[in-house]
Amino acid sequence: MDLIIAIFTGTVIAATPLIFAALGELVVEKSGVLNLGIEGMMLMGAALAFWAVTAGYPMPVAILAGALAGAAASLLFGVLALTFLTNQYAAGLALAIFGSGVSAFLGRGFGSEPIEALRGINVPVLSDLPLIGPLLFRFDPMVYLALVMFAAISWFLYRTKAGLILRTIGESPQTSHAIGYPVIRIRYMAVLFGGAMAGLAGAYLSVAYTPLWVENMTAGKGWIALALVVFATWRPLRILLGAWLFGGMTILQLQGQALGLEVPSELLSALPYLATIIVLVLISRNRQMLALHFPASLAKPFRPAG
């Protein structure tokens, strides 16, 4: 029983950074912009949040610092991709490299000591319920925040006018511009939001998930988040499900190592990456399903004419 609880809660926790990063990227891509730099923005968020905790700031401030760091990093991409109309693949890659360098630079003085991790909530009565308590009511606040963000983003994209405008811009910036919507400004906002979400994802890694600083600690989670958006065929609910699937994969791998399976640990560590490839293949084979929710102007630079 304890093992099942451990696997369930571990899955939810491991999925949380992926949910933040992938939901943020979803909003960016729905506006027609492809930001490949999630890995860099996550690392910036992780470094800043970790620094804030060691500098003695309270936890919420540290997490906010992480979000701001991610947003600041995304602004670099935004200026290049939206104002300077550069190739979005190249700008995103530059951000990924730059973010990993800057975070490693900032993190050189952090030492290898773990910090006190973000604590789980404690709701009177509910958290103490047998079974249901540990399964549902003892996570740290950011796990719940990720779910709130999921609900908010689903509602925003599909139930508000602003969300409709954002999706319209992603489908046809020319039409949106002709109608009079400020395409570039809205795309900037989407990019900044995506950056802040990636920053939150990074902050979660360094102050809650591992509570220590390791160079390049994201280990590809930013890229897996990118894959999740494709896997989800640009739909929020599937991002949630996909993140849990990957979270489960991570936890099974850790449990497998703990149980001392007769398999090289490297093979187990490679599982999430292998799974990403397999899942991408399964989804991408069906071109129609991809095309249905694919933002038609994705990664195409847009320059308002006249």
């Binding site: 860099g40 104002t83 550069t86 490299i97 730059f98 360098g101 630079f105």
Partner: peptide
């Protein structure tokens, strides 16, 4: 040594912007 990666990133940023 992380400076190397920072400079790489900055160089690419400027290159892309200069194109514009």
């Amino acid at each position: 040594s992380a400076l190397t990666r920072i400079f790489q990133g900055i160089l690419l940023f400027f290159l892309l912007a200069a194109d514009f």
